[in-house]
Design a protein around this nucleic acid. Structure first.
Lengths: 211, 211, 211, 211
DNA sequence: CATGAATGAGTCTTCATTCAT
DNA sequence: GATGAATGAAGACTCATTCAT
């Protein structure tokens, strides 16, 4: 009996091209967004940069918002990937090591595309309401909360939700600011930053411990 | 005792009217900005809401950016006022009390006009580069740093600048988030929030202390 | 006592200019509509023909539909004027003379701007729903019905509404068709046409009479 | 007697499929036209509704106009069928019966697809110039004229062409209006309508007769 | 023949800004 | 100084049509 050579089904040519086209569009969106800002990012300009016609762009995205949302989604997928991995590996670590890993992961996440991240944060209207953003926040919250829950005996907090929220928000804000203000930080500065943030948060979660 | 006739030179009628007109324009800007968002805030709409003609608006502001910048400046003056007062009164307090006061002041600052604050933070392009914002940040940084400097012996930090930055950024981020997500928080929730943030920061600055 | 010279309040310069501008826009709309058809009548083209900028056009009309509606309204005012006058004068005439006058008035109405009338009838979407059209139809119907009511004894119809409707529709259709197919008809042809239509309708309303 | 094997050459599979495809396209056109109006009826939308690709559509029709024209032609064929049959059967009838039959036929014709008919009449640009429409009008005119010619002695008209034109136009207009304004008319209303129109026209053609 | 992705001219509409009154 | 009509560049989006696969 002839063994059928297993064939991972090739994406049909058209599908592949589609994918490439969409990717090019998102790349162009990111590029225009970071180079020119949200206001100047017109669909025509984006299409031009992507090397396609506006018409094609509208074949894939019903409107400008959807285009930006798709870019946010793609960006978030990358970040979520990092965050998930980091928080998975963290499960067995003790709190200081875990917090340190989280902060490091947050930094990595912000360094995926700092300029883009900044535009998202500062200029995209109704960014917060985007389903993608809410999902990312929810999942991050959930992952962190789960970790803390497992370590409940080691930490000191009345309200786990509140603590999670403070943890997540603080890490995000400090990381964001660090990346914005010190885009060229060397490893040394980076490590010192991580140390400090870790100390801040561990001190909050484990006030009893002498350090 | 003869009552002193107030001699502080009255602003001339026209100057006073000017002020009122400008105030009306800024009010209108704030109103339109919060009601409709940055994109929909056209100068014509703002002028209409202010009850003046576009022409008049351009008599006072060379362009839309300047208009928004002026509003930012006015808003910042209010906030800076609060912050200054709080940080002045704080000078004599010990660290926990001082931090608590700072957090409370930050909350008050955010509650001056949360909706407007949010628009500024999320939609105004190149907000960060505005001279007014940088000035506010610089002054806040400086005030906080001065306080910490005076208490240097009581606190544990290697790098005072870094600590100040972490303090300011963390307070800002947590406060912002609190105001955004819990706009209707009662005093109880508010106090608990302040407690937590204070504990977070005092634990960072005074790790040796038992609490 | 100095007699105040009675001054018919001049329209202020700006108002007058406004009027002229709006008139120019409607003229241009009519022109483009008849020359190029509804599809080709873009707001930019109309503005260009009117000698104003698109922006100005949108200062007066919120969208293309409103522009066309305004033109319809203006056209209708002229027509309604004719119809009203004719039907007022007709009150004292006997039926044959009255019908003849109505038909003549309808012809005049159609000759106000036959090409435009045609475009309205054939190409403007949802023309029938326009308030202006419905109003014109309603008033015409009412005027005719009132006349017929006053002559009720002389005419033979069971259902006055139905008869009015038939009268109005028939006159409109025949007139329309005459103007379309014989745009250059001489007086002779015109009179013969009026004769025939009159005979048609009088025969319907007064079947008993020998003619 | 040997049964004749039917030899009428079956359309080849492909020809049959072609026909079906074209029919589907025209159905889709009609559907989109009545559902969305002429403006919104894009070729892509039509193709989608027809379940074919735009490309296929352009294989059969060189452009949008041709597509609409073909639909008009198909619709006209149905109507012409009705009209022809009616006017053929009418040949032997006396005038009142004949007119009544014509009006009834016109009504039937309008009820083939009233919504589509309306779109044709109100929105399709340059509808009147379409060869299909002119042909339909010409043939109708001719059929009616022939009938009247055969009855010349019984009717009173100076100009047979003019009379035919009045007859045809009036029936068309009244029928159209009836279908538009009373789409749900019961048989009673329908019969009364036919009565009135018949009386109108017979009175015109046979003024001498007492009725 | 069929497909449907791609095209890009053209549409409606908005808005910062100017300037004659 | 105030007014607000006018401007026109620019933006989002559509759609008839083509053509490589």
């Amino acid at each position: 009996m002839p063994r059928t050579i297993p064939t991972i089904p090739r994406k049909s040519a058209s599908q592949e091209r589609s994918r490439a086209t969409v990717a090019a569009m998102l790349d162009a969106t990111a590029r225009v967004l970071t180079r020119q800002g949200y206001d100047r990012a017109s669909t025509n300009r984006i299409a031009a940069v992507a090397g396609v016609s506006v018409g094609s762009l509208y074949q894939y995205f019903p409107n400008k918002e959807a285009l930006v949302a798709a870019l946010v989604a793609r960006h978030n997928r990358e970040i979520l990937q990092l965050v998930r991995e980091a928080l998975t590996e963290v499960a067995s670590l003790d709190l200081p090591a875990a917090v340190r890993a989280m902060v490091a992961a947050a930094l990595d996440a912000h360094l995926v595309d700092p300029a883009l991240h900044r535009i998202f944060a500062e200029q995209v209207p109704r960014m917060g309401q985007l389903a993608e953003i809410e999902a990312l926040e929810r999942e991050t919250f959930h992952l962190v909360r789960t970790y803390l829950e497992n370590r409940r005996r080691e930490i000191f907090v009345k309200d786990l939700d509140a603590a999670t929220s403070i943890l997540v928000t603080t890490v995000e804000a400090l990381t964001h600011q660090f990346v914005i203000t010190k885009p060229d930080a060397r490893d040394g500065a980076r490590d010192r930053f991580i140390d400090e943030v870790t100390r801040l948060l561990v001190g909050y979660l484990q006030p009893h411990r002498r350090r």
